[in-house]
Simulated assay, not measured.
Amino acid sequence: MIATQLRSFTWQFNENNQEFLVQGALRPQRPDELASCLQALEAAAQKAKGRLYFNVRRLVRMNNVAFRAIARKLIDTVSGRSDLSIHVTTSSVVGWATHKFSTLQEHTPKITVNEYDSEFYPGQSFLEDGGFIPILRTQTNLTWHHEKALLAKHGLREDMLVADICCGIGDFAVLIQKEYNPGRVVALDHSKSSLAYARQVASEFGIKGIDYVFGDASDMLLESDQFDFVTCRHSLQVFDKPELILKELYRICKPGGRVYITNEKNSHCLGEPRGASIQKTYDEVARLWNHFNMDIELGPKSRRYMMDAGFEDILMESFMVTNLDGDPQDFADIIQSWENVYAGQMAVRRGDTPEQIAELRQGFQDHIFAALHPKGYAGWPIWAASGRKPK
């Protein structure tokens, strides 16, 4: 991800999501003041396959000089590329952007426009199974900053046969396919709608080599001993019997292959200022999950689980995702998603009083405050572990 700043606006290209983001106030006096930004947009388009996302949902101001220059660049880009379309993402909060950019659809069907609140990738709300899907989407973008190199340390190599179990909407499988060039990726999940969405995303991005499969992670209809590398991220903690999932991960892995898992210990989330309130909320989150027979504290227990499952040569380490890994607002968006699900759905189902829910929400809001504070620090710890299946 590359970010650049010019005066009062910034631009950033996320190659993993094929998304070019412009934010701030875009008010040049002459078109040539945008030369660097337009060159970066052109370079982004050259790297993109299928669909390029042009995101202006955080662009608070833009004059006509800027709009005409950008509009011309977008139209010229799709006119010269038969294999590329552009999706402009606006926001209902900044209504003028939708009105302006929608005029581009009259020039070419290869440019589409939609507001942030509607369906688009990667920011659409796609609530399912307790709301975990939208959480995982944003999380993957930030954890990939760490896992991109970590996966190689745990044994992932080019041309391997890879399985991504409990893949959700398939974003992690796409990142593996792009970065590591495996021979084949099988991505499995129990949600048919998530898999349909994953296939759509892969098609839009021109991603080949991923087979999306419907199945139960605790009883997969996949042959034994066939995958060189098996991943299962942020998922064991959701099941009341994680040992059954690990048994299946072990079964489908080739002898000598490795299984890689990640899990959390939410009570170790931290932030300053307002650390005491933050700590209190995440201690309660651990109890909340336990009430529903889930263990969001599983992270440090991963080594024991893998040893009990029969793995050897176990590697384990932790990393801290923070508000300094990228845009602090992205970190804050994750926390807001947690609040929406944990305080907005799970706490209500547990039977918490309005006062208890308000106290729980306060810690999440204080964590957001720490993430966005100019001198603040906010962290979310994750444990990664892998083990080799004996030959």
Rank of each mutant, 00 (worst) to 15 (best):
K391L: 13
S92N: 07
Q18V: 02
R61C: 08
D308A: 13
E33V: 04
A202Q: 08
C269P: 01
N63L: 03
F369L: 14
K301S: 12
R287Y: 02
P31A: 15
D313Q: 11
A97E: 01
H107E: 15
V56Q: 05
D171N: 15
G183Q: 07
A358K: 15
F364T: 10
E179W: 05
L142A: 12
I75G: 00
A384P: 06
S194M: 06
F227S: 06
S235Q: 04
I252E: 10
R303I: 11
Q345M: 15
T353P: 14
N181A: 15
K100S: 12
K247P: 01
Y342W: 07
T108Y: 05
S277Q: 11
G80A: 10
T322D: 08
S386M: 04
G168T: 08
V88P: 04
T353E: 15
E19D: 12
L298S: 09
K375W: 02
E42M: 00
A48R: 02
M306Q: 03
T322H: 06
K265E: 15
V185H: 04
V78I: 11
D283N: 13
S235N: 09
T89P: 01
M62A: 10
T322W: 08
P242D: 08
Q18T: 09
E264R: 01
S235M: 06
A149D: 15
P182K: 01
E106Q: 13
I207G: 03
T103H: 02
S218T: 15
L151E: 03
I261W: 02
Q365I: 03
A187T: 05
I252G: 01
A3P: 00
S118F: 09
L104A: 06
Q279S: 14
Q12I: 02
R349Q: 13
A217F: 08
L324T: 13
T90Q: 03
I357E: 12
K73T: 11
K254L: 08
F369G: 10
G379K: 02
K110L: 14
L104K: 07
S191M: 04
D228M: 04
H145L: 11
T90A: 05
M316E: 14
Y53E: 05
Y116V: 07
I165Y: 01
E243K: 03
V348D: 11
K100W: 14
H99R: 12
N266P: 01
P242C: 05
I382N: 09
C166Y: 03
T77I: 03
I296M: 05
I245E: 08
T98P: 01
K375G: 11
I207D: 03
I169R: 07
R349S: 10
D219T: 07
I111L: 06
F331N: 09
H99V: 15
D330F: 05
P374S: 07
L156E: 12
I252V: 14
E312F: 00
K192A: 14
E339R: 11
M1D: 10
V238F: 03
Q29P: 00
Y260S: 06
L59E: 04
Q46H: 07
N181L: 11
A173W: 04
A163K: 10
G130V: 11
M306C: 08
P255F: 07
L270P: 00
A286G: 06
R61Q: 13
F172D: 04
D129E: 15
F331R: 04
C37R: 04
S235C: 11
R61W: 07
S386T: 02
G387W: 00
